[in-house]
Amino acid sequence: MKKILLSIIALAFVINLGFSQGIDVGVTAMISPTPGSDMAMDFNGTMSFNLENFGPNIPNGDTLYLGMYFDGVIAPVGYTLELTSAFNTNDVILTSGPVDFSLLSNVTAGLKSICFRTAMITDTDLTNDSACAFYNILSGNGIASVLGEQSTIFLANGRLKIDVTNADIVGSSMLSVYNMAGTLIHSEEINGDGHIQSTIDLTNESHGVYIFRLLSDGKLIESRKVMK
């Protein structure tokens, strides 16, 4: 298996406009740190994942672009991968890149999802672009937050997965999803005291940014932007 180290692009998430033909590349598995393992809240190191070419051969020298999501929110940095050899059909590359939690605004202790996703505008199949894994984020004293407020909200393969623990969740709660134009595209009522779980199917919605909101007893419990 080939190995490639990603370089980081600060300040902006980028989308590749350079490919003249359709490609089909996706992140297929999170490798390191081991999914399900502990990570410090001030993590500043390297994460690794498998990148697979499902489409035509991509020649040496071409560039791929990727993004990272922490707990469903896109990181304010993107990654560029310049190929040093041909990336042929069915090749799998073990890819590594730097991750610095200090650049993220939503890092809290508890069970959180981290996803990597390819971001080429000429990608012909967007359903195989991303892979996610859950990690136990530890607070500064090395203890995971197991009580109080926790939320895991992420969108993968068109499905918005929601798992929220909050003492203010009482009885009937309302889950809502809006697009960036403010149009309500999904709402559902769900019952639970202190904890709710749900999966919302957005596979038929267009790609873009969506806003998820959770209200319980008239109180806003959670509001989060996610990108499809």
Results as ranks from 00 to 15, higher is better:
5 L>P: 10
32 S>G: 12
20 S>W: 08
159 R>M: 11
174 M>P: 01
47 M>D: 00
211 I>M: 13
82 E>N: 14
63 T>V: 15
59 P>N: 11
75 A>R: 05
206 S>N: 12
226 V>N: 02
64 L>P: 09
115 C>D: 00
224 R>E: 02
105 S>R: 15
207 H>N: 12
145 S>W: 00
30 M>P: 09
118 T>M: 01
33 P>M: 04
159 R>T: 12
116 F>A: 03
41 M>Q: 12
221 I>C: 07
141 N>S: 09
208 G>E: 00
168 D>M: 14
151 S>F: 03
162 I>F: 02
150 Q>G: 10
174 M>S: 15
88 N>Y: 10
206 S>K: 12
167 A>E: 11
90 N>A: 11
190 I>D: 08
138 L>M: 12
166 N>F: 04
50 N>C: 09
67 G>I: 04
203 T>S: 14
55 G>L: 07
2 K>Q: 15
172 S>E: 15
70 F>K: 06
10 A>H: 15
71 D>C: 05
33 P>D: 01
201 D>K: 08
211 I>Q: 08
65 Y>M: 03
17 L>R: 11
167 A>F: 14
114 I>M: 12
60 N>P: 11
41 M>S: 14
64 L>D: 03
73 V>N: 02
136 N>M: 10
34 T>D: 08
12 A>Y: 10
215 L>R: 10
69 Y>W: 03
178 Y>H: 13
76 P>S: 05
70 F>D: 01
196 I>N: 06
72 G>S: 07
132 C>V: 05
103 L>N: 10
175 L>R: 07
173 S>R: 03
6 L>Y: 09
53 N>H: 08
186 H>K: 13
6 L>H: 06
118 T>Y: 00
49 F>W: 10
13 F>H: 09
150 Q>A: 14
12 A>G: 15
190 I>P: 06
190 I>L: 12
109 A>L: 09
102 S>W: 07
211 I>P: 04
221 I>H: 05
205 E>Q: 13
77 V>D: 09
184 L>G: 11
30 M>Y: 02
164 V>F: 01
90 N>W: 13
168 D>N: 15
181 A>H: 07
88 N>R: 11
22 G>H: 06
18 G>S: 13
164 V>C: 06
220 L>E: 09
79 Y>G: 04
183 T>N: 15
178 Y>Q: 10
110 G>V: 02
132 C>W: 00
54 F>I: 07
24 D>N: 15
87 F>E: 03
200 I>F: 01
218 G>T: 05
219 K>N: 11
50 N>T: 13
123 D>Y: 01
47 M>W: 10
183 T>W: 00
156 A>P: 04
177 V>Y: 00
193 D>Y: 01
85 S>G: 10
8 I>N: 08
149 E>H: 12
134 F>Q: 15
50 N>Y: 12
3 K>V: 15
173 S>W: 00
199 T>D: 05
180 M>A: 14
216 S>R: 06
129 D>Y: 01
11 L>V: 14
37 S>C: 06
44 N>H: 13
65 Y>L: 04
104 L>A: 06
67 G>P: 00
219 K>A: 11
141 N>P: 03
51 L>N: 05
172 S>L: 15
161 K>S: 11
142 G>T: 04
41 M>C: 12
178 Y>K: 13
108 T>C: 06
38 D>Y: 14
87 F>T: 03
56 P>I: 12
97 G>N: 02
3 K>T: 15
76 P>G: 05
216 S>T: 04
94 L>N: 12
158 G>M: 02
61 G>I: 11
39 M>S: 05
152 T>W: 00
75 A>Y: 05
135 Y>E: 02
